[in-house]
C-alpha cells in the first residue's frame, strides 16, 4: 500500500468542476509535483487531501486509513502551507510561530526550541520580534512555510509557496524543501513553474482543467516528446525555397524562421533526418553558423498535451 493514495477524487463548485476524478499515489520520502496552469485544480486537490474541503466523490487513504472517515489521522502529521499567506498580520513572527506550534500541541521549552530552529531554517531569526505586516513579501512567504514545519510533520503539502517573490528567496525555499526531504519528509508541491517542479520532484502530475493529463518521473514525461526535438540552425542567409524544401522533408513537423535562424520541429526524430537537413542547406549554398538541438522539457510536454502554453 502507498503512503498516500488518491482514488477517483472529484470536487464541483456549482457549475465548475474543479477536480474531475483524479487518481495518484505517493510513497514515503518522495517529492510529488502537481504542475498545472491557473485554475487547473491543484489547490482544490490538496485542500481535499489536507481535510479543508470534502470531496464529492473518491477516497483518500493515508497510511491505509481513510482520512475522509478519520481526518484526525492525517491532521497531526501534516504540514500545510496554503497558497495565500495565512498568518496574523498584527502579531509578531514569534507569536505566529508559537501559535501554530501550540495548535499542533507543542509546549514549553520544546516549543521554544522548535521556534528557534525553524526561524533559523527559514532565515527570519533577526526579525522574529517584528510584526508580520511589516515583513517583506519574501519573508512572509518563508514564515508561511515555517508555520507548517514546527511540529516536524511527516507529510508537507505546499501550495505554490514561491509565488511573487524574488529569485533569492525562491532559491532558499527550494533548497529548504530539498533539505527537509533529505531529513525524511514526504512532500507534495504544487506550482505552475515547471523549472521548480523539474528541480525538486521525483514524481510529477501534470494537471489541466481538473484532470491529470500526464504523470510519471520527469524523464518518463519528457520521453513522450523525445522524438519531437526542436532544432535551431543559425545560418548566413535564408530564402523561401530552402524553407519549403525543409518543410517537405519526411520527419519535419514545422519550420519557422526569424532573421537568419531556422527553427525546425521534428515529428519523428531520427539521426538521418538531421543529416538530411544539413545536406539540403549545403546544397542551397547556405553557410551554417551553429546548430542547437533542444531537449524537450515539461513546458513542451504541456504544450504538446494541451496545445497551450503552461503560463498564460
Amino acid at each position: 500500500m502507498s503512503f498516500l493514495s488518491v482514488e477517483n477524487l472529484s470536487k464541483k463548485f456549482k457549475e465548475v468542476t474543479a477536480v474531475d476524478g483524479i487518481s495518484f499515489s505517493l510513497e514515503k520520502g518522495e517529492i510529488l509535483g502537481l504542475l498545472g496552469p491557473n485554475g487547473a485544480g491543484k489547490s482544490t486537490t490538496i485542500s481535499m487531501i489536507s481535510t479543508l474541503l470534502r470531496p464529492d466523490t473518491g477516497e483518500i487513504m493515508y497510511e491505509n486509513t481513510s482520512i475522509l472517515k478519520k481526518p484526525k489521522r492525517i491532521q497531526a502529521q501534516l504540514g500545510y502551507v496554503p497558497q495565500e499567506i495565512a498568518l496574523y498580520p498584527t502579531l509578531s513572527g514569534r507569536e505566529n510561530l508559537e501559535f501554530w506550534g501550540r495548535a499542533y500541541g507543542l509546549k514549553g521549552s520544546h516549543l521554544k526550541n522548535r521556534v528557534n530552529t525553524i526561524s533559523e531554517i527559514i532565515g527570519i531569526k533577526e526579525r522574529l520580534k517584528d510584526k508580520v505586516k511589516n515583513y517583506s513579501g519574501g519573508m512572509k512567504r518563508r514564515l508561511n512555510i515555517g508555520a507548517a514545519l514546527l511540529h516536524e510533520p511527516e507529510l508537507i503539502i505546499m501550495d505554490e509557496p514561491t509565488v511573487g517573490i524574488d529569485p533569492q528567496s525562491r532559491k532558499h525555499i527550494l533548497d529548504t524543501v530539498l533539505e527537509l526531504n533529505k531529513q525524511g519528509m514526504t512532500v507534495i508541491y504544487t506550482s505552475h513553474y515547471m523549472e521548480e517542479v523539474e528541480y525538486l520532484c521525483n514524481k510529477i502530475c501534470i494537471m489541466d482543467k481538473g484532470l491529470i493529463i500526464a504523470n510519471g518521473t520527469k524523464d518518463e514525461l519528457v520521453q513522450m516528446l523525445n522524438d519531437r526535438k526542436k532544432i535551431n540552425i543559425k545560418v548566413d542567409q535564408v530564402n523561401d525555397k530552402v524553407i519549403n524544401t525543409i518543410r517537405n522533408l519526411k520527419n519535419v513537423d514545422n519550420v519557422l524562421h526569424e532573421d537568419t535562424t531556422i527553427k525546425v520541429t521534428m515529428k519523428n526524430y531520427k539521426q538521418n533526418t538531421f543529416k538530411e537537413l544539413i545536406d539540403r542547406l549545403s546544397e542551397a549554398q547556405i553557410t551554417i553558423h551553429s546548430v542547437a538541438v533542444n531537449e524537450p522539457n515539461l513546458e513542451a510536454v504541456f504544450l504538446h498535451l494541451t496545445g497551450r502554453e503552461l503560463r498564460d
Partner: peptide, 16 residues
C-alpha cells in the same frame, strides 16, 4: 478577519 487572512483555513486543517 481570520477568514480573510486564511488563518481560519489553517486552523481547520490543524488538529484543533
Amino acid at each position: 478577519d481570520e477568514k480573510r487572512n486564511y488563518v481560519w483555513q489553517r486552523q481547520i486543517v490543524s488538529p484543533i
